[in-house]
Design a binder for these strands. Structure first.
Lengths: 247, 247
DNA sequence: TTAGACGGTAACGTAACGTAAGAGTCAATA
DNA sequence: TATTGACTCTTACGTTACGTTACCGTCTAA
C-alpha cells in the first residue's frame, strides 16, 4: 500500500500524472478515509502495463480500451508489448542507418535520393498499421487463429468454403448499394458467421471497426479485393450501415 | 523545388505539420507569387534534421534554438543524433529486458522487486541530460543567438570563420601543455572572442565552468572534438589555468 | 469552362500533462 | 500542545504539436 509520492519516485512519473490517470479512469486506486490514494501491488502491476504501452506511444484512451476488455490477459500483453518494442527498436535502427548514410552523403562519399533521406522517419506507416490492428481486434484475430488451428483438416476446409461463399456473394453485388436489402442480408450472414465460428462475439461497434480495418490495413484490403476489386470498401460501407441499423 | 504535398508524401509528415513549422519559424520556405510554399533541397535537408531531433523527442522550440545557433554544424549534429539514438535504443533494450523479467516473474519463475518492475521506464533520465545543458549555457546561448540573428549573412560568416580559426589553432597545439604560453595566448583570444561577440560577459569563473562543460556535456565534447580528438579536454584544462592565473 | 486536385489562412478542438493556488492531513519536534 | 514541514487533495488555467473543419483562391487537364 503506497501513497502517490512513493509511487511517483519509484516509477519516475509525476504525481500529476497519477492524478490524471485516476481522473480519466485509467488507474484508479482506492482511497482512505481522508481521501488519500493508496496503491496496491496490483495497481503497480497495472501501472507497469500502462507504462509499457506508453513506451510504444499508445494513446491513453487506447490503453484504457485494451485493459478494460474482459478478456485482457496480462501474459499475452507482455509478449505482445515485447514484440512491438522490438519493432520500435528496428525502426530506430533504420533511422540510425539513414543518419550514417547521410553522413557519408554529406562528406560527398555517397549519393542519396530524396526518399532515402527520410527512411525510417515516417511515423504514419508503422503507427497506423499497428494501431489499426490493435484497435480493431487483433486480439480477436489472434484468438480466432488459435481456435482455427485446433480444428481438423476437414473442418478447416468447411470453414474456408464458408468464407469463400460469403465473399463471393458479396463480390457479385458490390457494385450496388451497400444499404440494399440484398447487401444487408449478406452482411448479416457475415456477422453471424464470425460470431459463431471463432469463439468471440463481435459487438456492433467492433464489427464496424473491423470493416474500417478492411480499408485501413492494406494487407486486409489486398486479401479481400482478391474476390473483386473494391470489395473491401463495399464491405466496410455495408458493415457500417449494418451496425447503424441494428443499434 | 517542391510544393507542400510533395514534401509531405515524400517524408510521411502531414501538410498541416509543414504549415505549422512555417508558422513557428522552424522551417520557413520561400513562397512564389501566388503564396505557395516551395521547398528547396536545402529546406529538405533541414527538415531531415528536424525529424531526426523529433525522433529523439526534442520539443520543437529546442530544435529551433539548436538549429538557429550560428555555430550549428550539420555534420556535428548528425554524429550527435546518431549517438542519442543509440542511447534511446539501449533504453528500449532495457525495457525489453524488464518485460522478459516480468514474464518470468508472472510465471512464478523469478522474484522481482518493485524497483526492477520499472526499470527503463523512467523518462527523467533523458530529461536530466537536456536540463543540465540548459543550466549550463543555454541561457547564454539564447542571448547570443538573439544577437546573432540580427546580423547579416556576411557578418555571420565572419563569425563562423573566427570560430573555426580559433578551434583549429587550439587543435594544432592540443598535444602540448595547456599551461604553455602558446596555449594561454590562444585561450585568451577565445575568451576575448566570446566576450566581444555575444552580448554577454563571461566572468573568469563562468569561463572556467564553460570549459568544464565541454567535458561534462557529451554534446559539446563531440562538437569540439570534431576539430581534433581530445581538444575538449585540452580546452578545459587551458581555460582552467587561464582562470586561475588571471584571478 | 469546368471539375478536381492542390494551395492558402483562420480558427477551433484535442491529448497529456505542467503549473500554480488554496486548503486539509500527518508525524515529528520544540 | 503548538508548530513546522512534508505530504495530500481538488480546481483550474496554460502549453505543445498538431488534427480537423471551413471557406476560398489557383492550376491543369479534359
Amino acid at each position: 500500500m503506497k501513497h502517490v509520492k512513493e509511487v511517483a519516485t519509484l516509477t519516475g512519473i509525476s504525481v500529476r500524472t497519477l492524478h490524471y490517470y485516476d481522473q480519466i479512469g485509467l488507474l484508479s486506486p482506492e482511497t482512505t478515509d481522508n481521501g488519500y490514494r493508496v496503491y496496491t501491488e496490483e495497481d503497480l502491476e497495472k501501472l507497469q502495463q500502462i507504462l509499457f504501452y506508453r513506451a510504444l506511444d499508445f494513446p491513453l484512451k487506447k490503453i484504457k480500451n485494451i485493459m478494460d476488455r474482459p478478456d485482457f490477459n496480462h501474459l499475452e500483453a507482455l509478449y505482445y508489448q515485447k514484440e512491438c518494442l522490438q519493432q520500435k527498436k528496428d525502426r530506430l535502427e533504420t533511422i540510425i542507418h539513414t543518419i550514417e548514410h547521410t553522413i557519408q552523403h554529406t562528406k560527398g562519399e555517397q549519393p542519396m535520393t530524396d526518399k532515402e533521406k527520410f527512411n525510417g522517419l515516417d511515423f504514419s506507416n508503422n503507427h497506423y498499421e499497428q494501431e489499426a490492428r490493435e484497435k480493431y481486434g487483433e486480439e480477436a484475430v489472434n484468438r480466432s487463429s488459435q481456435k482455427v488451428n485446433s480444428l481438423s483438416h476437414k473442418e478447416k476446409e468447411a470453414l474456408n468454403q464458408s468464407f469463400r461463399r460469403i465473399y463471393q456473394k458479396l463480390a457479385t453485388i458490390r457494385h450496388g448499394s451497400p444499404a440494399s436489402e440484398e447487401a444487408q442480408k449478406a452482411i448479416h450472414e457475415w456477422y453471424e458467421f464470425l460470431n459463431n465460428n471463432f469463439g468471440y462475439h463481435y459487438t456492433l461497434e467492433a464489427f464496424r471497426g473491423l470493416g474500417q480495418m478492411y480499408v485501413d490495413d492494406p494487407r486486409f484490403t489486398k486479401n479481400i479485393d482478391q474476390y473483386g476489386e473494391g470489395l473491401a470498401l463495399f464491405m466496410r460501407d455495408a458493415m457500417n450501415v449494418y451496425a447503424n441499423r441494428n443499434n
